[in-house]
């Protein structure tokens, strides 16, 4: 049995971290960071990813690639809470001289497997990694790539999807943060992706769907995905952009905008209230 309370606790901290660091930075991407919080919390704190914060290059680690690199704050929050660096360093996000660049930079920050930010490239990198790990026969490492749903409009994603299935790479798990919003509007307003799961299935992937904010449900699909053999696995996580903050939820305007100090305070209060009610429920 997993300790969902522990994961929820970390997720709540990560949401606070994200709000505070983006507010301090004065810019950044809160919407798509918040939609991916629960996914990342389960990956990092639900016993899914194998990693050693004090040994970031440990050979036996699973690889996590944040293909939607603009959601860097969620990755930084997870890495800090996991112990890769001090939580206090989150306050340096996007500042001159910081290791916490606007988009993840693997040259600067341990725990970041590869630099991302130009959308559409993470899945190909994950596929190359998965192949390299599979042929090394040293372990059973898996490669997890977190993609945005809008990001699936990039053609390179489908080049990678086709190739991963053809190579029968069972050690790669793509998670789609399906929050239905991109910068210019909803996916259906910009370019509809239709049935995402059907598309991955057609490309030869095993597909799973889950409520991307259901901790126990996420843990369950990750467990299921880890048993995948001879085929890559795509998890379509249905999420809400800006999840957890009432005035941000489902608003594409919060894709790439920092809250004001007042808005941040309101949001933190809201989070504190919902945390408290969770405690009561327990």
């Amino acid at each position: 049995m997993i300790d969902t309370a522990e994961i929820e606790h970390n997720a709540a901290h990560m949401r606070q971290d994200i709000l505070k660091m983006i507010t301090l930075a004065g810019s950044g991407h809160p919407g798509g960071s918040l939609s991916a919080v629960d996914i990342c919390a389960v990956l990092f704190f639900g016993g899914v990813l194998r990693y050693r914060p004090d040994e970031p290059d440990w050979e036996g680690r699973d690889r996590f690639i944040l293909s939607k690199g603009h959601a860097a704050p969620v990755l930084y929050a997870a890495l800090a809470r996991a112990g890769y660096f001090e939580v206090a360093e989150l306050a340096t996000l996007r500042k001159f001289g910081s290791r916490l660049q606007g988009h993840p930079d693997s040259q600067k920050l341990p725990g970041v497997e590869v630099a991302t930010g130009s959308l559409g490239q993470g899945l190909s990198i994950a596929v190359g990694m998965a192949y390299g790990l599979a042929v090394s026969e040293k372990g059973q490492q898996r490669v997890y790539a977190l993609l945005g749903d809008g990001e699936l409009q990039e053609g390179q994603i489908w080049e990678a999807a086709m190739f991963a299935a053809y190579k029968k790479l069972g050690n790669i798990i793509a998670i789609i943060d399906n929050n239905n919003l991109q910068i210019d509007g909803s996916l259906d307003e910009v370019v509809s992706l239709g049935d995402i799961a059907a598309k991955f299935t057609a490309f030869g992937w095993k597909t799973l769907e889950v409520d991307g904010h259901d901790i126990a449900g996420l843990k369950q699909v990750f467990d299921q995905a880890s048993t995948c053999q001879n085929a890559p696995c795509a998890i379509i996580a249905h999420t809400v952009k800006g999840k957890g903050i009432n005035f941000m939820e489902g608003q594409c305007g919060w894709h790439g905008k920092a809250p004001s100090d007042e808005q941040c305070d309101d949001a933190l209060k809201e989070l504190a209230t919902s945390c408290a009610s969770q405690e009561v429920t327990r």
Partner: peptide, 17 residues
Amino acid sequence: GIAEQNMIGVAAGLSLT
């Protein structure tokens, strides 16, 4: 296959192993 973008990405991933 005829997928040069993926060619570079896959090479990048391989190099990281």
